[in-house]
Design a protein around this nucleic acid. Structure first.
Lengths: 313, 313
DNA sequence: CGGAGATACTTGCCCAAGTCAACGATCTGC
DNA sequence: GCAGATCGTTGACTTGGGCAAGTATCTCCG
């Protein structure tokens, strides 16, 4: 049924859609289990939100649940006439009214809530504890990765298990994709990383990962070139995480470390095609001191050496 | 709001329900994105099932999608009058008729399918590759745990850009996690991978990735030890993908390649703590020929050499 | 200050989505 | 050969929810 080339991304898309279909069906089943309740799904959701987050206005609620304002208005009126809901006008805004459950409303909700909780308990009880934990962790992961209206916070942390491999993987993947470099480059990165992992003086050398949502999105290394010169290496930021200033912060972090480690200057080696990195280096006070054509990674390139002094703070 | 004792199970239940609410909202958003399509959600789902699994009867379909038989009957009639659907009576059962999309139906579906796929692609494109992989893996985990009999298709493919790095990353991460090995091991793997990427004879050496849903879940390499001896290396299967026979198939694949490349025997090096791998090697006809204590990766270990003959097919 | 445009909420109108019950045709097991 | 299930259809009905117009209020900006 598929005539297109089947890339990993296509397979990821297929997996995503299969999950969506799966969960649609799953939600249908959950819903049926609660059929004896007098409230249809949407009303139950409204009740739930009202119980969880009091002092909402109707518009907030509609946005939160993705409901039509008109439809919601009717539901709320019904709740009100049934004595489940009270509205209080907001003094500072004549249009709005905060919604609050009455005691009766809270009781109705408690019944509903207990039923739903019992249903989920029944589901979870069928799983061994380790599986339950994995399930919950996986759900959290999906949620965190899909729900990113708020720009996810990120941090810089030292290298941990697997991170060296990630640096190799991301360099190999990205430089192949963006510049067409071949496996020779991935091999070079692997050698650099291997040498670093094999032996480095933590006082004078270091590697760091920029991480967002528990996922690596960038890297930078500082290694010793000679007693007075630090070398910056393996700076990378995933395309999807660019524009957040992560690259700049990584370089600043590296400079700070090198300064603290007592180096007098810092150098780095790059290629002229890497224009985004170039701007970061310039902004960080580096100056290009040498350019040299070479043939590597399956391409004709011009390598560049950049340098800057490190004066103690 | 909660007066009950808060056990881990309660928190798991709460997380489960939060995810369910989250995904309900998420589905609402996905649905809105496809509003311009002429088919409402349910009809689209029916179309989808028909395209995926041909030769269903109406009752099968209703069960699969959790739809009312009467409602479905009407939808199907509409499809039929629109020329999207053909019914064929089943000879051995006069009540049933198998449903099959016509050429026009398949085309309608293709349009719908492309739109949905494009929407998901847009969502995934916002994520860095590592995050995409984690997302898909997490979805797969949820699915597998909630629906024990969900089959998981996977395949074995040659190494591509970034895969060498993934091999380093997964080895470093897993052996640290499962056996507490230190960065020396990740360094060793990086060196092996670097040497392989740097130069290998494709006729006599190879590396492969087991991939599921576009996510790497396993690896195996064959390298030359001497003219007559192949060496199997870097066999690994992610914990989430174990128990599916992937390890066995990777070893079989490696043996098949080595045999085709003209080697007379195959050898491999492992450690006695890796009990799962041991069983795979035994089943594949390997015999342990030497054991030797050593101290590596921050642990006292016993290394093992295994061998088997390779007779031409 | 005043007017343009947003926002909060309501209402009427409408159709899509789904339920329920009854019905004929056919199959399966005893 | 009959009871009971299953497949599929139909008519009558309820519910869920989208859309657009309208009122009242607020906010921003010249």
């Amino acid at each position: 049924m598929d005539d297109s080339v089947d890339t990993p991304l296509d397979r990821q898309i297929a997996a995503f859609r299969r999950f969506t279909r799966f969960y649609t069906r799953h939600l249908g089943v959950l819903r049926e289990g609660l059929l004896d309740s007098p409230y249809p799904l949407t009303e139950a959701r409204v009740l739930y939100e009202l119980a969880q987050a009091p002092d909402l206005g109707a518009a907030d609620l509609a946005r939160r649940l993705g409901l039509d304002a008109g439809y919601l208005s009717r539901i709320l009126r019904r709740f009100e006439t049934d004595g489940l809901l009270a509205r209080e006008p907001v003094p500072e805004d004549g249009r709005r009214a905060t919604l609050r459950l009455t005691e009766a409303g809270r009781q109705e909700f408690a019944v509903l809530d207990a039923a739903s909780r019992g249903q989920v308990r029944g589901l979870l009880a069928r799983l061994p504890d380790a599986a339950r934990r994995r399930l919950v962790a996986a759900m959290r992961t999906v949620e965190a990765l899909l729900d990113r209206d708020a720009p996810a916070p990120w941090l810089i942390r030292p290298l941990g298990p697997g991170d060296g491999g990630w640096v190799v993987e991301s360099h190999g993947r990205l430089y192949a994709q963006e510049y067409g470099w071949n496996a020779e480059f991935e091999a070079l990165v692997a050698e650099i990383v291997a040498a670093f992992l094999r032996a480095h003086d933590p006082a004078r050398e270091g590697g760091w990962i920029a991480e967002r949502d528990g996922v690596p999105v960038g890297s930078v290394f500082v290694v010793r070139q000679d007693a007075r010169t630090a070398k910056l290496r393996l700076l990378l930021v995933e395309p999807e995480a660019r524009g957040l200033g992560i690259g700049r912060r990584l370089v600043e972090h590296a400079i700070g470390f090198a300064r603290g480690a007592g180096y007098a200057r810092m150098t780095l080696w790059t290629n002229d095609v890497l224009v985004a990195a170039r701007r970061i280096y310039e902004a960080a006070g580096f100056v290009c001191t040498a350019r040299e054509p070479h043939t590597s990674f399956g391409k004709d390139l011009i390598s560049e050496t950049w340098e800057r002094a490190l004066t103690p703070e």
